[in-house]
Nucleic acid binder design. Structure first.
Length: 259
DNA sequence: ATTACTACCTGACAGC
DNA sequence: TGCTGTCAGGTAGTAA
C-alpha cells in the first residue's frame, strides 16, 4: 500500500503526538507482526522514550533513548493514533499519553526493535541530481525494476515509479545505463515533482491507505497512468496500456513513452 | 548483477 | 449463490 508520500504523511501526522512520550507496553495479537519473538520485541521497547520520529524510504523509524523502533506498513498496514481496534489489529503500542494501533489485514507489515537503521539506498526524496544520475548510469538493468529496488533508491513503489516515468516520458523497459544525461535529469526532476505533489495531497488512497488519524489521501485523482489502463493519455489522447514489468503491473502510454 | 518464480496473507471483483 | 481465478500500494528467498 504505502510508498514514500504515504509514509511521510503518517510520520508528519504522528510526530507531534508521540515525540517525548514513553512506551509503557507493547501487545502483539499476531506473532507475525513482530519480526522476531514478540516477547523479546516487547521487552526491548518497554520503558523506552521516543526522542524523534522520521522516515527512511518506506520505513517509519522511532529514535528511542536506546535503539530504534521500526515499523513497515508493507501492503495494508495502518498505524493509527488512538485508533479503533478490529479483527485485523496485530499490535498495540501503549504510550504514556495514548496508544498506537497497528492494523494490517494481509499481515505483511511488522513492528520491531533494532540497534540502528535498516540498510537502504539513498532516499528518493531530496537525493541530489548528480548522485541519482550516477547510480542509474552504473547499473545494467531496466529502469522500472531499478527504481523499485529499495537498495538502489529507497521510497518509490509501483504507483510513483509509473507516474514518474510517464512524466519523464521514459519507457519502463528502457535500460537505465543507456538513458541520456538529459533524460536522467528529467527523470530526477519528475520524481521530485510527483513526490512533492503527492505529499501535499496526503498520499494516494486506492483501497486501504489512511494516515495516522484515519484520513485518506487524494492524490489518486492526480494519477495520470496508474490504474488508468484503457483511458486516454492526458497528453496525447491515445489509450493507456497495462503490461507486466518485473512481475509488477505497469501502466504507461505507448506513444509518449516510446522505447 | 539481473531476472524469473514462489511465497507470505486476506479481500475484492469478474466470470461462469 | 457459490466457486474459481486474478489482482493488489511490498519484499525475501531461491534458482538460472
Amino acid at each position: 500500500m504505502p510508498e514514500l508520500p504515504e509514509v511521510e504523511t503518517v510520520v508528519r501526522g504522528l510526530a507531534a503526538r508521540v515525540v517525548g512520550q514513553q512506551i509503557v507496553n507493547v501487545r502483539f495479537f499476531s506473532p507475525r507482526a513482530a519480526l522476531g519473538q514478540p516477547d523479546e520485541t516487547a521487552a526491548a521497547l518497554r520503558g523506552r522514550r521516543i526522542c524523534r520520529l522520521r522516515r527512511l524510504g518506506k520505513h517509519i523509524l522511532f529514535d528511542l533513548d536506546s535503539g530504534v523502533l521500526e515499523v513497515h506498513l508493507r501492503m495494508t498496514g495502518k498505524l493509527l493514533w488512538n485508533g479503533v481496534t478490529n479483527p485485523y489489529t496485530r499490535a498495540i503500542l501503549e504510550l504514556t499519553g495514548g496508544a498506537l494501533v497497528f492494523n494490517d489485514t494481509r499481515q505483511f507489515g511488522y513492528l520491531t526493535w533494532r540497534r540502528g537503521d535498516p540498510n537502504l539506498g539513498p532516499d528518493a526524496l531530496g537525493i541530489p541530481e548528480e548522485r541519482f544520475a550516477e547510480i542509474l548510469r552504473s547499473r545494467r538493468g531496466r529502469i522500472k525494476p531499478l527504481l523499485l529496488n529499495q537498495s538502489v533508491i529507497s521510497g518509490l513503489g509501483n504507483i510513483y515509479v509509473d507516474e514518474s516515468l510517464f512524466r519523464a516520458r521514459i519507457h519502463p523497459l528502457a535500460f537505465s545505463s543507456k538513458l541520456s544525461e538529459e533524460r536522467l535529469r528529467r527523470l530526477h526532476r519528475m520524481i521530485q515533482e510527483v513526490l512533492a505533489e503527492a505529499i501535499a495531497a496526503g498520499g494516494s488512497s486506492i483501497s486501504d491507505y489512511v494516515d495516522a488519524e484515519g484520513r485518506p489521501g487524494w492524490f489518486q485523482v492526480g494519477h495520470r497512468v496508474y490504474g488508468r489502463d484503457g483511458e486516454p493519455c492526458v497528453t496525447c489522447g491515445r489509450g493507456i496500456r497495462r503490461t507486466v514489468v518485473g512481475q509488477r503491473g505497469t501502466h504507461f502510454c505507448g506513444y509518449c513513452q516510446r522505447r
